[in-house]
C-alpha cells in the first residue's frame, strides 16, 4: 500500500490514477498519524514551495515526512515534493525538510529564447544505475513544469540530469529517498515505468 500525501498541492489524484492504472494499491491521506504508519510514501506537489510548506506545517506533515525518512521506508517526491526534500529553496525563506542536502535554485537563462517556467518534454540522462531508473533508455523524455530546480550539495545525490540552459538534477536521491523534478504521472510510458519500479523498490539505493 502506498500513501500519497495530500496537502492541497494539486496532483495527488493524478498520481493515484496512475497507480490504479498500474494495479498498485494506494490511498490519499492528509493525516500525519496515518503517515507515521505508512510503509511507502509518495509526496507529490504542484505550485509554490512556500505555500506548500505552510500547509505541511499546519497539518504536522513536515514532521511525519521527516520521521518517515528516518524510518527508512521508500519515499518518492514529485516536482514541488522533490524540491521540498532539500534543505532550502530560493523560492521561500522557510526551511525545507532537509532529507537531502542542498537547495532549489531558480532558472536564470542567458538565452532569451529559453522561457521560464521550463514547460514541456525534455530528455533524461541517468548518472547512476538507480533501481527506480533501471528501465530508462538514452533519449527518453519526460514532462516538466517548473521554474526552480533541485541542486543537491553532494554530487552523488544526483541520479539523473536534464538540460535547459544549464544542466540540472532531474532525479535526486539518497538511501531510501528518491525524487523526480518532472511529473512521472504525466510522462507517458516512461513515467509509468519509473512509478512501477518505485512501487516495487525495497528502498536500497544500490
Amino acid at each position: 500500500m502506498i500513501h500519497v500525501v495530500d496537502y492541497d498541492a494539486g496532483n495527488q489524484t493524478s498520481v493515484k490514477r496512475a497507480l490504479d492504472h498500474l494495479g498498485v494499491a494506494s490511498i490519499i491521506t492528509s493525516d500525519s498519524e496515518e503517515l507515521a504508519r505508512a510503509e511507502r510514501i509518495i509526496f507529490p506537489g504542484v505550485g509554490h514551495a512556500h505555500s506548500a510548506l505552510e500547509t505541511l506545517r499546519e497539518r504536522g506533515l513536515d514532521v511525519a515526512l521527516k520521521s518517515a525518512g528516518a524510518r527508512g521506508i521508500p519515499i518518492l517526491g514529485i516536482c514541488v515534493g522533490c524540491q521540498i526534500l532539500l534543505s532550502g529553496s530560493e523560492e521561500t525563506d522557510l526551511p525545507c525538510l532537509d532529507l537531502i542536502g542542498g537547495r532549489c535554485l531558480r532558472f536564470r537563462p542567458d538565452d532569451p529564447d529559453l522561457k521560464v517556467p521550463h514547460m514541456g518534454w525534455n530528455e533524461l540522462c541517468a548518472s547512476h544505475g538507480h533501481p527506480v531508473l533501471r528501465h530508462l533508455r538514452p533519449g527518453d523524455e519526460v514532462y516538466f513544469v517548473h521554474s526552480y530546480y533541485p541542486a543537491p550539495g553532494d554530487e552523488r545525490d544526483v541520479l539523473a540530469t536534464s538540460r535547459y540552459g544549464v544542466e540540472f538534477a532531474a532525479v535526486i536521491g539518497r538511501e531510501n529517498i528518491v525524487a523526480t523534478q518532472f511529473h512521472v504521472e504525466k510522462s507517458g510510458p516512461v513515467g509509468l515505468k519509473i512509478l512501477g519500479e518505485f512501487a516495487r523498490w525495497d528502498g536500497d539505493a544500490c
Partner: peptide, 8 residues
Amino acid sequence: VARQVFIP
C-alpha cells in the same frame, strides 16, 4: 480521460 491517458 484522466484514468487512461498519462500525458498533460
